[in-house]
Nucleic acid binder design. Structure first.
Lengths: 158, 158
DNA sequence: GATGAAATGTTATAATATATCATTTTCTGA
DNA sequence: TCAGAAAATGATATATTATAACATTTCATC
């Protein structure tokens, strides 16, 4: 069984740091500005292993001393989502960092209903099944939402 | 290519009627009451080929002469959803009738972003891919959301 | 430094959803 | 059949999520 979540003891700060570097690269490539606000929102999202709601981000930013209004957060989220740096988890109305912003992919999300952690998978078998099914009914895919809720291994066994 | 939506000329009233009959059977089997309100909401959902929002249902009921408040609609939706008679489309915050309320299944939804129509699929290849992926990471599935947005064949070609 | 485009600030409000308590309806068992 | 309990609905208020519209600031470019 492969790991759903990062192994114990992994250096999360380092992950966040590397995600930031990736994000910068992507923005650069797209000629998009990775502004302060966008960086802050991105970082807050990446600092969590759970999906984060817009208003949680709002609160976090306010706690940091910035007085911020909803549109500011939603704009940052829209920007990050459009570049593929962050994914929206539809069934949670919340946002989650994307591991692989640099390549096109149909991602899948595992959401543990017990501990709340989220993990992105890029499983070709799932993606291909979706693509094939769409093809079979003459459907042209624009976007897919694959969210799987249940118990992660830790929560199921402990 | 198989059809995504019902063929032209199919008798939709008859579909709705048969869905109602099915719903009654399911409620019976579960010892659940298919009350007037629940029947009305169910029917309104089935009369549409699109997903319907709670407030659209509210408006429709009000137009029918009932003065109805949000909790009433949400309660009916919760009831119908729990029995599997209706599915929530997470990416639309809307509801859609389920063809196969009598059997357990992991459904998939095709949503045309042009005409707005929705179709449920029960594609074993997709379901199995999801189950297998979950198994592979030791994840116990409670519920899945598979929503595919894009262009249906009609909209892509016309 | 002037200019225009992009980003953010600000205010207001729309859209979606639920908590709580009151009332009515339905079922159950004496 | 009717008293009591359970289920469903009504009513009121409010929480949560999201966007519209216009003002101001920031930033790249000339």
């Amino acid at each position: 069984m492969s790991d759903l979540f990062p192994k114990k003891g992994h250096d999360h700060d380092r992950c966040v740091h590397s995600a930031l570097a990736q994000a910068e690269k992507v923005c650069d490539a797209e000629n998009a500005r990775f502004t302060d606000m966008r960086r802050k929102v991105f970082t807050l999202i990446w600092q969590s292993h759970k999906a984060v709601t817009a208003y949680e981000l709002l609160d976090a930013l306010t706690a940091e001393g910035q007085r911020v209004q909803p549109p500011t957060v939603y704009r940052a989220l829209e920007f990050l989502t459009e570049l593929g740096l962050v994914h929206r988890i539809e069934s949670l109305n919340a946002y989650f960092g994307c591991d692989r912003p640099d390549c096109e992919h149909l991602g899948q999300y595992f959401i543990c209903t017990d501990c709340g952690r989220v993990a992105e998978a890029v499983n070709e078998e799932m993606s291909n099944a979706v693509r094939k099914a769409a093809m079979g009914v003459g459907f042209t895919i624009q976007a897919t939402t694959v969210e799987i809720k249940g118990l992660c291994h830790d929560c199921a066994t402990h």
